[in-house]
Simulated scan of single mutants.
Amino acid sequence: MSVYKPAKSRFWQYDFQHKGRRFHGSTGVEGKRDAEAVERRIRIQAAKGELDDASRMTLDVAVSKWWDEKGSTLKGGERLEARLARMIALVGPNTPLSEITTEAVGRAIQKRRGQTLTKSKAKGAKAYLPSNSTVNRDMIDTLRPVLNRARKAWGAKLPVIDWAELRMAEPKPKPKEFAGDELALVLAEVQPHWHDMIHFAARYGCRLSELFFSLDDLDVSAPENARVKLRNRKGGDDHTIPLLPDDAAMLAARLGRARKAEIGTVWFREKASKVRGRPPRVVALTYNGAAIALRRAMERSGLKASKGMRGAHDLRHHSAMQMLRATGNLRVAQKLLGHADIKSTLVYAHAVEADVRAGLAALSRNSPEPTEAESGKDAAEQPAKGKSSGAS
């Protein structure tokens, strides 16, 4: 059997050829014997021609194909592999794609809801049920991209699934923004080589993964018309944002150095050479490094304890809130963030509305109605003024 386990993966992979066609991908299982069973089943399907019709393809084969074509290129590969394995086990690895209906997905979701999880603590493990957000992510957000690709790229004719009906209610996020010198507190807790990236994220609202855009997707040839295209985004669509001249100049300088150093991102740091006399080396910054640096900065600055700020995504919230306050225009904020549906942007409008309510309440407290004594005094003085006016 031709199964193997990559060094950076928990799961075994399969790789074989049938009639000149190559079949390869993740088995979604951690044991070699189970992986060989998966590969054996895929070989049988290939021999029967079942893999030529995408709608007859079983879920485990479809996920393997999706992983090879798309999933392996996405961020957080190991976590995504684990979610795919959970989803396959709950829906059923041998389930043909044509039999995955709204009802079938609903049953799998109910199974996921009932699975007890454990969280390790200093005094022992605590059992708990997964949150609605976790269930949605593990089931809907993991299965839906696979079925979408089967339909759009592989030509499969599949049942229509009511994803909105299946999605469980999640608590609305509470956007946070930096006030006063709070962003400076964060910058003080990270190394200077992170500063440009943090300022950029706080201004343009990019997700952390989107900050690591391709060098070829950055256009700074004309500062007055500079822009960057963000790919591999949540939802799968591309999004282009315009750049201010100062930021375009900063990125143009970084772009030149990145190309010279042959690295794939404009975000880098200089590292002193071990050889005396040689100039510093340019070393690319990484997604994981940025996530860790910002998470620690939120903790050390006290913003996690005081405002619940946890990391990079708070920069996106800050950008959205600032744009909405400056323009009062939801459509502009939607365009900046790249939301396909303006409903996703409305959460920021609700946050601003809450501030307005708080302001009105404070205004009411600071401007009380006149007391009865003051009202009586005003009434007594009014006729006197009128009488005096008439005498003159």
Rank of each mutant, 00 (worst) to 15 (best):
T101W: 11
L80T: 14
R83G: 07
S72D: 07
D34G: 06
I100N: 00
I88E: 05
W66L: 05
E39R: 03
A35K: 03
R79H: 05
R40M: 14
G92S: 02
G106R: 03
D60V: 14
D52P: 08
R40Y: 05
G31Y: 11
P93R: 03
G106Y: 07
E81F: 12
G28P: 00
V91F: 07
G28K: 03
E30D: 11
E99R: 06
V61D: 05
G92C: 11
L80Y: 10
R41P: 02
W67T: 00
G71K: 12
G28Q: 02
D52W: 14
G106Q: 10
G76R: 08
G77Q: 04
S26M: 10
T95N: 04
L51T: 02
R43V: 10
P93L: 00
D52V: 05
L90T: 01
R86H: 13
N94K: 13
K48L: 13
L90W: 01
V63M: 01
A46N: 12
S98T: 15
E36I: 15
D34V: 09
R41K: 15
V29C: 01
M87Y: 02
S72Y: 09
G71Q: 12
L90G: 01
S55W: 07
T58V: 14
L74C: 07
I44Y: 03
D68M: 10
V91M: 02
V38L: 06
L84H: 12
M87S: 00
E81V: 13
L51D: 00
G106K: 03
A37E: 07
T73W: 08
G31W: 06
K70R: 15
A89I: 15
T95C: 04
K32R: 12
D34L: 15
A85N: 04
D34C: 01
G31A: 10
R79C: 08
L74K: 01
E50H: 03
L90F: 09
A54T: 09
R83N: 13
E69H: 11
